[in-house]
Design a protein around this nucleic acid. Structure first.
Length: 390
RNA sequence: GUGGCUGUAGUUCAGUCGGUAGAGCAUCGGAUUGUGAUUCCGAGUGUCGUGGGUUCAAGCCCCAUCAGCCACC
């Protein structure tokens, strides 16, 4: 009698819940994977094409980034997962020795304008006139070629708003897809996470969680959020779904969020999250600080010789001024994006680390309160330009 | 000295038959939530070289003048 893959994977992947905050649902734990341990809560930077844009892997390691996210869809289109397998897997290909989570491509299908979703899978054009079919089987096979530590099930991520009928039908199909994902899954060194759908309908979310838990997967994610529903709905969905998820498995909220969103996730007992915001915003010149967003291209920073964030100890803040970084952006120097990304990733990392320590000491709510007394959602530090030579 | 060309936004230029000015770049602002983002959206720039004239109305037509460039002497 052969052992189920769900049981085999437990030798290589597990989650240990260390502590739940006394005054909230916030959790601290540790995820073990073949490529290392991940203390939680954790924020995962996004490296879609097998690279965190503007950051060298050694910088990420120096910053003690524990896990990054990469993408099935993009790596399938280029350079192809067969090639990456030949290169020795994604870790080796991109020279990243630590854990990698790969998204299944479900979200990319969602964001494509032209697509056709059938029982078989999702069909779309690769943008160069070639038709591509992404199915549960192809998605898992690609992710197994990539060799990620955590694979995501291939799901349909539906837009907001969605009718109850569409949501229900789509969800049922995603469950059938999940079973096909599980049948294709054959590498016990790679964990497979299921994704909770159900849009804004609590009963469907609940039903979905039951279906997923019945499959006894290594971890579960809340999907179908950050699809345009807004902060209020997002919080409603998270706060409803998270407590229904298994206590002894990692809980992952996909694609969220802003710094303020992270506190909402953690407070509700989410362990993992990812978002393009810190990296993408950095490249556009929006930096995060303990006081809020800082748009470094603003004129105010022209002669501002303070670091981005006084309380930050990242490489950027230790060595460079706002005026210099603004200058780099004005001059279109790549270094501007590099320093900005370095800071934003360090900022997110710092928030998560602070949360973990606070949870372990049962003071997460104080930590949150402290954050929001300084953090202005709409505007941050307005700079120190003295205009003396105008 | 003579003839010609040019003069309009920070910049490069467009501006039809005369109807009180536009575009790219740059600037400034906003967006961005499992990255189809060096993207997307929005805003503003003006003594139309100057002074007169014709006209209901002039960036445009006429005269003068200034500046730059070119050609010829």
């Amino acid at each position: 009698m052969t052992e189920r893959i769900q049981d085999q994977v437990k030798e290589h992947f597990n989650f240990k819940l260390l502590h739940v905050d006394k005054h909230s649902k916030a959790r601290a734990g540790i995820i073990s994977t073949p490529h290392g341990d991940i203390p939680t809560p954790v924020f995962m930077p996004v490296g879609t094409h097998g690279a965190i844009k503007a950051l060298q892997p050694n910088v990420l390691e120096d910053m003690d980034t524990k896990i990054i996210l990469s993408n099935t869809y993009h790596l399938h289109l280029a350079p192809g997962s067969d090639l990456i397998k030949k290169a020795g897997g994604l870790h080796k290909f991109m020279n990243w020795p630590r854990p990698i989570l790969t998204d299944s491509g479900g979200f990319q299908v969602f964001s494509l304008q032209k697509k056709s979703i059938k029982e078989e899978g999702a069909e779309f054009s690769d943008g160069k006139g070639k038709k591509v079919l992404l199915s549960p089987e192809t998605s898992i096979n690609i992710q197994q070629n990539l060799g990620s530590d955590i694979m995501m099930a291939f799901d349909e991520c539906i837009p907001y708003p969605a009718t109850r009928e569409y949501t229900k039908n789509s969800m049922d199909r995603t469950h059938r897809w999940l079973d096909r994902c599980i049948s294709t899954w054959n590498n016990p060194k790679q964990a497979l996470f299921g994704i909770i759908q159900g849009s804004t309908y609590n009963d469907l979310r609940e039903e979905c969680i039951k279906e997923l838990v019945a499959r006894d997967l290594p971890g579960y994610a809340i999907g179908g959020v950050s699809v345009g529903e807004g902060a209020e709905w997002m919080e409603k969905i998270i706060s409803f779904a998270a407590p229904l998820m298994p206590v002894d498995k990692p809980r992952y909220a996909m694609g969220i969020g802003n710094p303020e969103d992270l506190f909402m996730l953690w407070e509700n007992g989410i362990d993992m999250s990812d978002c393009i915001i810190p990296t993408k915003f950095a490249r556009g010149g929006t930096l995060f600080t303990s006081r809020g967003k800082m748009r470094i291209r603003h004129r105010n920073y022209r002669r501002d010789f303070y670091p981005i964030d006084h309380s930050c100890s990242c490489y950027t803040c230790k060595n460079f001024t706002r005026a210099y970084i603004k200058h780099l952006f004005d001059s279109n120097e790549i270094l501007g994006q590099i320093l900005a990304t370095t800071h934003n990733i360090a900022f997110y990392k710092g928030l998560a680390e602070g949360a973990r320590v606070a949870i372990l000491e049962d003071r997460f709510m104080d930590y949150k309160k402290e954050f929001f007394t300084h953090y202005a959602k709409d505007s941050g530090d307005s700079g120190n330009d003295d205009n003396s030579d105008d």
